[in-house]
Each structure stands twice: as structure tokens, then as C-alpha cells.
Design a protein around this nucleic acid. Sequence first.
DNA 1: GTCATTGCAAATCCTTTGCATCAGC
DNA 2: GCTGATGCAAAGGATTTGCAATGAC
Lengths: 138, 138
Amino acid sequence: MNDLLERVRAMGHRLTAPRRAVLEVLARERAHLTPEELHRRARRRYPKIGLVTVYRTLALLERAGLVERVHVEAHCKSFALVRLVGAHHHRLICRDCGRVEEFSDCALESTLKSLQKRTGFAIESHQVEVIGRCPECQ
Amino acid sequence: MNDLLERVRAMGHRLTAPRRAVLEVLARERAHLTPEELHRRARRRYPKIGLVTVYRTLALLERAGLVERVHVEAHCKSFALVRLVGAHHHRLICRDCGRVEEFSDCALESTLKSLQKRTGFAIESHQVEVIGRCPECQ
DNA sequence: GTCATTGCAAATCCTTTGCATCAGC
DNA sequence: GCTGATGCAAAGGATTTGCAATGAC
């Protein structure tokens, strides 16, 4: 949590109460949340916070690479904190509670290499999302 | 193309001119398109078609599993035809022209097995998206 | 002829912007 | 105190809905 705050500050941004509230919610809940859900929860910590600020904070955190969109739901409206910061990472998501676990060992290298050979594409990146049910929800 | 039309009809839906137009565009362009782009292109085949019908057709095709959302862009607004129908499949997408290639050999079985063991999640599905530049765009 | 489908307009969301005020540093 | 950040209201987009007219079967 403190490292998150430090990161925001290090990028030259101010550490304001609304930003703290959003980051605290994201860090505490290990799930992906829509801006609306995030707003509702952040309000419990800082009642004055407006939905607009949540949007702006998410945009800031996304630019900073601290938060990413999750693609399980139809419209991809929710966000989750990036934990394996900076590193190559993917997500394992509980379809019931939305809980997010990260992992980095996707073992796709050889698959990508043969794809590249077969299609002629110059492969630049990839994303994996695994859906399941977490131990608690089973 | 004809198999697509047959599928729609087989599900008990009517084969109307607007639906043909949308399917033709999706089948011809090997890329992902937003509802708006799709509308613009479909209009060339059937000028009366409204944007609303494009939305409704996409919803129908998505329910039928013939079309899926693509997640490259920030808001996941675009759709692409599913080619390896029914089968397990993933996408290789050109970041410049949006062209989509499908593949099914992701070789993730052992990765998922060990993930499942490590996290206790009951894994149900996964999706992979690979981004790169196609031969033409390089 | 029947009933699903369409197009239009309007409603409804979701997200972004403009602007005066506020608060970190 | 300077300047970035906030909240509010309003604008802007995207998507959905209501309804009468149309067209597939």
C-alpha cells in the first residue's frame, strides 16, 4: 500500500485524500471493480469523493501502469490493481466474486514462436486471462 | 459465408437483408470492427440499415457464438467473426490494421494445471490474445 | 397472414469536459 | 502562494428501448 502511494508521488502527482481512498479500496479488495463500485466503496473512506474523480484517478493509475482493465465482463468496465508491478503478468479471475490473482509463468514462448513463423506476424505482446472459481466460492 | 447464413437460420432467426449485410462485412474483412465501422460498411451493401440494427445483430451473433469481442482497444468496443467455430480458439491481432487470425494450439494445459494446484481455483476457461503486426503492415 | 425484425426517435447509461474552488507541496 | 486536483453541472458518446411499419416465412 505505502509503495503504491510512493509510486504516485514519485511520478510527480499529489497524494490527495481521494486518491488515497481509491488506492486503499483497490489494494484491500483483491477483486476487479467498476468505477461505480469503486466510487461507492471509496466514499466510505472519503465521503466527499465524486465519481468523476474516481474516473480521473483510474485514468492516472492506468497510465502509471498500476491498474489494468479486466476483460471478463461483457463490456470490460472494471479495473484491478497490478500487483506484480512492471513484470510480465496475467490474471486468474474468480467468476463469482471477481477476485484476481496474478501469475507470470505462462509458458507461451514456443507457442508464440511457431505462431510467428506460421503467420508472418511480428509478435509484440500477449495477454492471458484465466477464469475459474476461487476456493471460497467453490 | 453460406454456412454462417445457414447457422443463423438454423437457430430459428430470419435471414434478413440487414443481417446478411452485417455478416458479409464481417466475413469479408478479416479484422475487428466497432459497431459504427460495421454500420458504415454494411450501409454500402444495404443503405437503409440503421445503426440500431447493427447493435441488435451483433448481440444476436454474439449470443450465437458467431462473433466475439476483441480486447485490444481500451474499451473493447469491437467485434470479430469467430472462424474456428465452436472450437477452442484464441486470436492473433494486427495492431495496425486490426486483422484477426485465429489459432487453437495454445499449449497452456500444464500451465493451467499447475496454476490450479497452486491457487486452489477450479479453472474453467481461458482466453489468449496476441498482438503484433501482420506481414502487410510491417 | 403472422410475427419477428426494422428504423426512427427518445431514453438511458457511461465517460469526459469546463470551470470555479480547494488543498498539496 | 502556485498549481495541480476536486466537485459539480453539463456535454458528449455509446448503447438500449418503445413503437409503428415492414417484410420473411
